[in-house]
Design a binder for these strands. Structure first.
Lengths: 210, 210
DNA sequence: GTCTATATAGGGATAGAC
DNA sequence: GTCTATCCCTATATAGAC
């Protein structure tokens, strides 16, 4: 009991690191053991199978992301505040956990059903409520739910994709870690602003069509 | 020599399908052989190792994407036409090859260097030229290269991310293939329009700061 | 070119001592 | 709880017949 938490934590840290870089099939139990400074048998003592260890990490990953989103969306702030807070938190989170987004997206691609227990998009993406806020706080009365869907997906895309595509962008354009980091930090304020300006533009467009 | 092209093609088709779904480590030579309707030994006869077969598929994937982008960017069309054509082609391509984007992004994450021979972002992302077109065709004189970089990354994000995140969005929001397909098709015209409206908004913002 | 059969290694998992 | 040794299956790769 003395070292239990400690060893378990070391295993989880090592497993997270290896699984995020290599995925389930690519990861080696030996490599995880090495990185944790223990031997293979002990991995199986704590987590009976590779699969179980993997899903401990998957669950942990989702529990890292979700409270953050949930917290913002269940607040009673103005839309502007919500967006700014969400963008800011996202950038910090993904900057710290560089492999997280691709890891999560891969798991969702491989196994969309298994993850449903963790994620409930509907809970966060309350379109009717979003619509109300857009109307009362910005007076955009021609915005419909379809437009909001597009705008929200764009918001997510703009937040997450620059992290996923980071290797190729940085490598190919010869951008240093430092510069790319600044680029990402700028987006904390830029992306929410673009979300609003996009909605305004959509609203104008819809008004003129009518 | 009689069946060579035929068998080789069957192998490539099968390998593409399996590698895209499972990745390098997750794919099984047996599964590829089965899907190609041949046996394992023949795989090794045509492509000596799993690795070589994998990189044949990787190369093919990049050769599918790049001419498309290159073609658009080396044309002398207006910016609006370029964007519309690029968006339209992208959507059709990714709709047809559902696993392509995540497959490519994974490879780039795993092995950013190895791929550099295929991709030359600098060639496409000619920021000075883009800036000139923005100024002459839309009169946006306050747009600088940093803003263009953000706008272009947003454009890419908005095009690609909805395909990557498709499983979770569809599954979780209970959206049918049919409806999500319509959603994506709409973006052929929507995303270019948002690119321009974003630049206009940035231009206003920059003007007022000055 | 294509097959069956097999060599060889790698890696997940367990037994058992301490 | 932690280790060493080992089991055993799976998967890549090759040999060799046709």
């Amino acid at each position: 009991m003395v070292k239990e938490d400690n060893t378990q934590q070391k295993i989880l840290d090592a497993a997270r690191s290896v699984f995020m870089k290599k995925g389930l099939a690519g990861a080696r139990m030996q490599e995880i053991a090495d990185e944790a400074g223990i031997n293979k048998a002990l991995l199986h003592y704590y987590f009976r199978t590779k699969d179980k260890l993997y899903y401990a990490i998957i669950e942990e990953a989702f529990q890292t992301i979700l409270p953050l989103v949930s917290d913002v969306f269940n607040s009673s702030e103005t839309l502007e505040m919500k967006l700014n807070r969400l963008a800011s938190k996202y950038v910090d989170l993904l900057e710290e956990h560089r492999y997280l987004p691709l890891f999560v997206l891969n798991e969702l691609q491989m196994n969309p059903g298994r993850i449903s227990e963790f994620i409930n998009l509907k809970k966060f993406l309350n379109i009717p409520n979003l619509k109300k806020q857009v109307q009362t706080e910005y007076g955009l009365e021609f915005i419909n739910e379809g437009m909001l869907m597009h705008a929200f997906i764009n918001f997510l895309s703009n937040m997450i994709f620059p992290f996923i595509a980071r290797p190729i962008i940085q490598f190919n354009l010869g951008i240093s870690d430092e510069i790319y980091r600044e680029f990402l930090m700028t987006r904390k304020v830029l992306v929410p602003r673009i979300f609003i300006s996009t909605l305004k533009s959509m609203n104008e467009y819809a008004k003129n069509i009518k």
